[in-house]
Amino acid sequence: MKLFAVADLHLGFAGNREALAEIEPRRDAWLILAGDVGETFAHMRLAFESLAPKFERLVWVPGNHELWAVGEREAEPGVAAPRGEARYHAFVDLCRDYGVLTPEDDYPLLDVDGRPARLVPMFLLYDYSFRPPEVAFEEAVDWAKRSGVRCSDEQFLAHEPFASRSDWCRQRCETTAARIAALGDEDVPRILVNHWPLREELARPPRIPRFSLWCGTVATEDWHRRFNASVVVSGHLHMPSTRTIDGVRFEEVSFGYPKQWQGRRAPDAALRRIMI
């Protein structure tokens, strides 16, 4: 089978919704949706109903935009928008309605281009640790604000029932690391998938470097070596790239906002072939 990936479809934008029609069928391939499909259940259904017939299977991991508690913007009349962890699990339930693989499912062993690989979709969040050592945790958000950087997560991304996003991140990292360690097939290469980059050096947008606060956690800096990754897939930064670190390929597979892709590349070209 073949494996493709794309992140940050941002279907809240009409231009991005229209772009779904331009993605060509690859019925012998799986497609990873590496977070930020959109903000509402309607956006997710649109993605699944548009893309599932074109691929053998879809895989989804959440980004920060799915986790936003957007209230009146939800396409669920009369139903309060779920928040925090409940929101994440509501999206997992929706994925299961469509047969979409999530971080809560077993990690499948695949034959990718004739080679075995373990696909590991993850939901790890961030904990504000991508910051200089002289900046204290309590001062981190103000440090970012002093350079004009603000993330809407501070308003929209609820963390209930956890005390903070950092606590939620810690729980997700601990649980996921234990699950991977329990696989017991260390010789099989892994394809690690997370919306946020796993390493701080990959989380520095040149124009807004202090946005790194909302881009991951130092707890995952060694996961590509620790868990025998052949490829690490992420999005979030809207900076598509391929980099090799310690012999492991890191693929940033963002599609992005209309102004970032229109006139520059065709929507179908945003899908990255993942090779092991």
Rank of each mutant, 00 (worst) to 15 (best):
K2N: 14
V6S: 04
D8M: 05
L11P: 07
P25A: 13
P25T: 13
R27C: 08
L31D: 14
I32F: 12
G38C: 10
H43M: 00
H43F: 05
E49F: 05
E49M: 07
S50H: 03
A52S: 15
E56Y: 09
E56V: 01
L58M: 10
P62C: 02
L67H: 09
G71V: 03
E74H: 10
A75H: 08
A81Y: 00
R87C: 04
H89M: 04
H89G: 00
H89A: 01
A90K: 07
F91M: 13
F91I: 14
D93R: 15
L94F: 11
R96T: 03
G99K: 08
L101C: 06
P103I: 09
P103K: 09
E104D: 15
D105T: 08
D106Y: 03
P108F: 06
D111L: 14
D111N: 15
D111G: 09
D113N: 14
A117Y: 13
A117S: 15
V120G: 03
F123C: 11
F123Q: 01
Y126P: 10
F130P: 05
P133H: 05
E134G: 02
A136E: 12
F137M: 01
E138C: 01
E138H: 03
V141S: 02
V141W: 01
D142H: 05
W143E: 09
V149E: 12
R150C: 02
Q155V: 14
Q155I: 13
F156M: 15
A163T: 11
A163M: 00
R165P: 02
S166K: 15
D167Q: 14
R172F: 12
C173F: 11
T175H: 07
A177S: 13
I180Y: 07
I180P: 04
G184S: 05
V188F: 01
P189F: 09
P189V: 08
I191Y: 03
H195N: 13
P197V: 12
L198Y: 13
L198T: 05
L202T: 12
P205K: 12
R207K: 12
R210Q: 11
S212Q: 14
C215F: 13
G216Q: 08
A219M: 12
H224R: 06
H224N: 00
F227T: 03
V232I: 10
V233C: 09
S234E: 04
H238S: 11
S241R: 15
I245M: 10
V248F: 03
E251D: 04
E252W: 01
S254K: 03
G256F: 05
Y257S: 01
K259R: 14
W261I: 04
D268E: 06
A269I: 02
R272L: 06
R273E: 15
I274G: 07
M275Y: 01
